[in-house]
């Protein structure tokens, strides 16, 4: 019943069937995604911003949880590949009428959708959909609960590679609410797979997973120590609810301990870059001067998000096309 992440995501020829988590994927696949995305960055700069790779394919954006950035960049990515895009904001429709996830899925399959791009508040939702979808349908995880947000992690890797060239030798600090962050989980897996020399997480104990070290990171509670000599700083969004859940006393104390200021940034390597998956809480995670400063690559992350998502969509659709042809032959 439960396939390994590798068996679920890759076929026998190591081609992407689904893209659900970085877990189980090796360096060559991640590098292939980055290289493919590299080829797509030019498309956005052309007068006609389209390539015909996915013409005639139907991609459904299945968002059970609100999102602006991720949904829009997926939509743009699919449209630039010439796919037809359905945007379904499910949180407001079917499930509130009592329809189960499986029924929603079956109804969309009946409309001959080729790919589901899924965001859901529950960990494991994308796995569930991939395990229950028709064999020819690809599933891309656009964020499930606290589990994974692999396309975000890949666009972050793309941004890092663009600025740093190589992964080997890099020190990366991820700062903030690691416990609830699907982004952090996927980033840590991607960074370690791509061979950086050190991944640090910086947070108070209440915002760390119970056994954070088992994720393959070094744990720091003191931001000044954790940021020292790093090449990349990734700041995570802090949900305001964390104050209510007795995880933090106040935004004020959080910012004073874990907010990124120019003073702290000076402790990192001189050519360090600052990243954030967005949306930013200015004055909570970072000072506006840092967010808008020369080391911030936050807006580039958004642009690269389109190229990365084009790469992943086209690779999964490409696998489907090749498999259909193989069956036909």
């Amino acid at each position: 019943m439960s396939l390994s992440n590798k068996a679920l995501q890759l076929d026998d020829e190591q081609r992407l069937l689904h893209f659900l988590t970085i877990d189980g994927l090796d360096r060559s696949i991640l590098t292939e995604i980055l290289d493919t995305a590299e080829g797509f960055t030019g498309v956005s700069e052309r007068t006609i911003k389209k390539v015909p790779l996915c013409r005639g394919k139907v991609v459904a954006n299945l968002f059970f949880e609100n999102s602006t950035r991720t949904r829009t960049t997926f939509e743009l990515a699919a449209k630039r590949l010439s796919a037809d895009v359905l945007n379904l904001n499910i949180s407001a429709s079917a499930t509130s009428k009592g329809e189960t996830l499986l029924d929603t899925l079956r109804n969309l399959e009946a409309m001959h959708v080729d790919m589901f791009i899924v965001r859901h508040a529950t960990s494991g939702a994308a796995h569930f959909i991939a395990q229950h979808a028709d064999p020819g349908v690809g599933v891309i995880n656009a964020g499930d609960g606290r589990h994974a947000h692999p396309t975000q992690a890949m666009l972050d890797m793309f941004t890092i590679r663009r600025h740093k060239g190589e992964f080997v030798g890099l020190r990366v600090a991820i700062v903030g609410d690691i416990l609830h962050s699907r982004v952090a989980r996927s980033q840590i897996l991607a960074l370690n797979t791509l061979g950086v020399s050190e991944v640090r997480v910086v947070a108070p104990q209440t915002l760390l997973p119970s056994d954070a070290r088992s994720l393959g990171v070094h744990v720091y509670h003191d931001f000044d120590e954790g940021i020292r000599d790093v090449d990349v700083i990734i700041m995570l969004r802090l949900q305001k609810e964390r104050m209510r859940g007795a995880m933090l006393p106040s935004e004020h104390e959080y910012f004073s301990l874990y907010g990124l200021t120019e003073r702290r940034l000076a402790l990192a390597k001189p050519d360090a870059i600052v990243m954030h998956p967005g949306p930013i809480n200015r004055g909570v995670e970072m000072d506006s001067k840092v967010a808008d400063g020369s080391k911030s690559v936050i807006l580039q992350q958004v642009s690269y998000g389109i190229a990365i998502r084009m790469a992943i969509i086209s690779m999964v659709i490409g696998t489907q096309n090749q498999r259909t042809q193989e069956v036909a032959v």
Binding site: D23, S123, G124, D144, G145, R146, H147, A148, R182, R185, P209, S210, D211, A212, S214, L215
Partner: peptide, 15 residues
């Protein structure tokens, strides 16, 4: 179980 597997799978843990 609150531990390394739930940490990785992002499942809310019971300590």
């Amino acid at each position: 179980h609150e531990g390394k597997v739930a940490d990785r799978l992002g499942l809310p843990g019971i300590p």
